[in-house]
Design a protein around this nucleic acid. Structure first.
Lengths: 117, 117
DNA sequence: ACAATAACTGATAAATTTATCAGTACCTAA
DNA sequence: TTAGGTACTGATAAATTTATCAGTTATTGT
């Protein structure tokens, strides 16, 4: 990724940092899977076939950078990797839960409003 | 804005719709102000000097489209407009509140992680 | 030796979001 | 009649995010 200097600064307040952490097309889905034990990149790839592996890796890298998840390398016969939620990541899950709840409660209205032109 | 056809579809699930509604650099801030009665575009402009009026108008238009806010026109001597939260918008505020709370609780860590390269 | 799986990275294109600049129209007060 | 406030819109540029395509390194099973 090689050191990219952001030109539009991120607002320095709690709301904005939370928005950033959650902002990423596949992040919430990835976190939900990791929370339920689907935590190897190849497994995530199989469970999220709409996203390419390249994109999943990028999202995982950002979640790592933001310290929402961490990574363990298992050097067995075939080396593999497992991701897991950090304490910070665990503390974020209730927010994801309420977002899902609200969205599902209003899904018909939201679908119409958001997908209309 | 003239009918723009989205090419990357929005995932049809509660989490994603919620993310969309909240996704917009100035939206959360706008909603917080509207909730506390700062609800005229010119007032919002004064309270959010980092954003240009054009950008605020665009964000307001999207919040309107998503039915998170609504609008009343006051045809007095000088016509003016007031925005207010719809019921849907009101029901969203607790989510914004927990996002702010979480972000502020972890702000030092988040600031470092997010702004690092 | 060869294909398949594991986990990645680099380069670049496409799409979307955010910002900038320049207008419109209407009203008021100096 | 000019300046300033109200609320907007159009066109386009800049920045960021998402996707695509092509590699790398290493191990297993055929």
């Amino acid at each position: 990724m090689a050191h990219y200097e952001r030109k539009i600064p991120i607002l320095d307040c709690g709301h904005e940092y939370t928005r950033r952490v959650l902002h990423g097309k596949w992040k919430i889905r990835i976190l939900l899977y990791i929370a339920e034990g689907i935590n190897r990149p190849s497994e995530l790839e199989r469970h999220i076939p709409q996203a390419t592996r390249r994109v999943l890796d990028a999202q995982l890298a950002e979640l790592l950078k933001h310290e929402i998840i961490d990574r363990t390398v298992f050097d067995e016969s075939v080396k593999h990797v497992e991701y897991f939620l950090t304490d910070l990541g665990k503390s974020l899950m209730p927010i994801i839960a309420v977002m899902g709840k609200w969205g599902n409660e209003h899904i018909d209205k939201l679908r119409k409003a958001i997908n209309s032109n």
